[in-house]
Write a protein that binds this DNA or RNA. Structure first.
Lengths: 314, 314
DNA sequence: ATTAATTACGTAATTACTTACATAAATATA
DNA sequence: TATATTTATGTAAGTAATTACGTAATTAAT
C-alpha cells in the first residue's frame, strides 16, 4: 500500500519529512484561518527576537541553524509586515541589527496565546502516543552526531568492497598482469627503468629466489599486485606494489600489503623493507599505517625514483 | 544554546525536519561521492518502477505521496539520464506509461548494493538508540491521523475563547448595548421595524413582565446579547439574539442561548419558542444544534422578516 | 603601515517541491 | 446523442530553503 512505509529503514528520511511537513502545514493553516498576518516560517526568528533584541543577521542564522541568506529573506518579509526594523551597528558597520517594532511586540503578545494552544495540542498528541517523543528525537540526534549516516554507510561500502577482493599467489597465468599493472603507474608518475623491465618481465625469478608475488582478484580480474623479494634469510623487500586506477579506493593496497607481511612472518622474516618516492603520498601513508618507519639508506638505491626507505620490524 | 531544542513541543515540526534533512543530505552525499549518476530524490520513484513497470504519472504520484507535477519533473530528469522511457497508453490515450529502460534495470542492480548498505547503516543507528524508531513513527502517524494537530489546536482555541466570555444578566448599564448590538445586524440584513424600536428602547419592560436579558462580556465590553420574553406561565420566547461581527466565531451565540435556556428551565418553563429568517443560516444551524425543531405558525408573526418558527420542548 | 585573512552581508542562481490553472480524453447523465 | 463531469496530464508560477560568489569592513600578521 504505502511505499514509504514498506521500505522500512531505507526511507527513514522520507518518513520523518512526512511527519514534519504535516505538522508545519497544520500550523500554517492555523495562522491562515485566524487571519493572523503571520507566516509559520517566521516563527523561529520572531521568537528569537522576542527573547533578545536586537540581533545581527549571522547571530540569528547561527541560533536558528539556517543560512544567512535565509535570515535576510525572512527579515525583508517581516520588515514589510512591519514586525521588525533594522539599523546598522555603530560599532561594526558591517553588521545590521534586527529588532522588533512596537507592532512586532504587540503581535507577539497576541500570538503568545496561539502558541500556548499549539504547544498544548502537541503535548496532548504526544501523551496519546504514550511515548516520550522529545526524548526519542534527542536520542536520534545524539546517535547521528556520534556517527553520521554517511560515515556508517561509507564503512559498510568499504567493508563490502574489501570482502569482494580475493588475494592469490603467483601463477604463470598472472605473468602479464604483473607487468601491465606496474607499467600503468610507472609510466604515469615516473619512467620505466632498466631494472623494472628486467624484474617485471621475469616474475618467476622472484619466486625462484625465495620470494613471492600476490595478486588482488576483483570481478575475476587482477586489480592489484605486490611482490616480496627475498634479501637474505630474515629480510624481505616489499616491492612492485600496484593497484589499477579503476579499483582505487577499495582498500586493495592495504589488503595486498597485509597479506604479504603475513606471508613474510610465516617465512620467519625479522623485517620487511621497502623503497619508494615521497611523491606517492597515498602509498607512504599506507606504509606508515602498517607500522613501517622511515630509515636512512644503508646502500644507494638501484632505482632513480627512490627518495625514501622504510622498514618494518616483525 | 539550541533554540529549536529549548522550544520543546512548539518546535516539534522543525526538529523532525532537521533529522530528515540530515538523513537525506547524507544519502545524497553517498551518491555524489561514488559518482553514481543518480539523485537521491529519484529513489522512491525509481524503486516503485523496479517493483512494477510500467506505471502512469498519477499512479506513481499516489504511490509516492507526491503531486503529479513532481512526478512529471522527476520523469523528465530520469528520462534524460536514460533510466526510464515513456509511451502513451493505447487503451487510454490520456495516460503516459513510464517504464525502466535496460540501462535503468542495470543501474538498479548496481544501486541495490548501496541501498543494502544504507539500510544496514540505518538499522545500525536505530539499534544504537535502543528505540523502535519505526514503531514510534508509526504511532505518531496514527495519532495524527485520528486527530490532526490542526483539529487539536482549533479545539484549544475554541475552548479558550469560550472561557474568555462571561455571561451576565441585565443591568441598566447595558441598556444602550442591547439596542446597538441588535441594530447592527438588523440594519445589515433587514430593516428596523416599529416593534424592534419599541422593544430595544425599553429593555426593562422585558424584565418587568417576567423575562430576562443576557449579555456576553468579552474584554470588558458587551459582545453579544439575547432576551427571554415571557409568553405565559410555561412558555418563553428566545428573541433579540445578537453577536457583534468582530466577536463572531467565538461561540458566543451558543453560550448565550445555552444560558438563556438554562434560565428558562429554572423558571419551570415547558418550552422555548423563537421566530427567525431562513436567510440567517448560522443562527438556524445553532438553534437546530440546541434541539429546536421547526414548527408551523400558530399565529401570524409580528415581524415582517419572520419566515420560520421553532420550538424546543424542555 | 601595508598586506593578507577573516567576517558580515548581499545578490543571483539553484533545488525540490508545491499550488493553480488549462486542455484533452474518457465516462456518466439527461 | 449531445452535454456535463471527471480524470490524466501538462505548464507556469510560487515557496522556502540552499549554494556560490562578490564586496565592504574589520582584524591579524609582517
Amino acid at each position: 500500500m504505502d511505499l514509504t512505509k514498506s521500505l522500512g529503514e531505507l526511507a527513514l528520511g522520507s518518513r520523518f519529512k512526512r511527519i514534519s511537513d504535516r505538522l508545519m502545514q497544520d500550523v500554517n493553516l492555523i495562522y491562515k484561518e485566524h487571519r493572523l498576518d503571520f507566516e509559520s516560517r517566521w516563527f523561529l526568528m520572531f521568537y528569537a527576537l522576542t527573547q533578545r533584541s536586537p540581533q545581527s543577521i549571522t547571530e540569528l542564522a547561527a541560533a536558528l541553524g539556517f543560512s544567512h541568506p535565509a535570515i535576510i529573506q525572512l527579515s525583508t518579509e517581516m520588515e514589510k509586515a512591519g514586525l521588525i526594523r533594522s539599523h546598522s551597528d555603530k560599532e561594526d558597520k558591517r553588521r545590521r541589527l534586527l529588532a522588533l517594532t512596537e507592532k512586532g511586540r504587540v503581535t507577539g503578545s497576541d500570538l503568545k496565546e496561539i502558541w500556548e494552544d499549539i504547544e498544548a495540542a502537541a503535548r496532548e498528541a504526544i501523551r496519546e502516543t504514550g511515548i516520550d517523543i522529545l526524548g526519542v528525537i534527542e536520542k536520534i540526534e545524539t546517535v547521528l552526531e556520534q556517527k553520521s549516516l554517511w560515515a556508517r554507510v561509507e564503512g559498510k561500502i568499504k567493508k563490502r568492497r574489501m570482502d569482494a577482493v580475493e588475494i592469490v599467489v603467483y601463477s604463470p597465468a598472472h605473468k602479464s598482469a604483473f607487468k601491465s599493472l606496474n607499467y600503468e603507474w610507472l609510466e604515469k608518475y615516473f619512467k620505466i627503468e632498466e631494472l623494472d623491465r628486467k624484474i617485471l618481465s621475469h616474475p618467476e625469478k622472484i619466486i625462484k629466489s625465495g620470494g613471492q608475488i600476490f595478486f588482488a582478484i576483483h570481478g575475476g580480474k587482477a586489480a592489484g599486485t605486490c611482490a616480496m623479494i627475498k634479501h637474505h634469510r630474515h629480510e624481505y623487500e616489499l616491492a612492485k606494489m600496484a593497484v589499477t586506477e579503476k579499483a582505487q579506493g577499495m582498500q586493495i593496497g592495504k589488503k595486498l600489503a597485509m597479506t604479504a607481511i603475513d606471508w613474510a612472518k610465516k617465512q620467519k622474516a625479522h623485517a620487511v623493507v621497502l623503497e619508494t618516492n615521497r611523491k606517492l603520498a597515498a602509498a607512504c601513508a599506507l606504509y606508515k599505517k602498517l607500522g613501517f618507519i622511515e630509515v636512512p639508506f644503508t646502500s644507494p638505491s638501484l632505482y632513480q625514483r627512490t627518495t625514501i626507505a622504510m622498514r618494518l620490524e616483525l
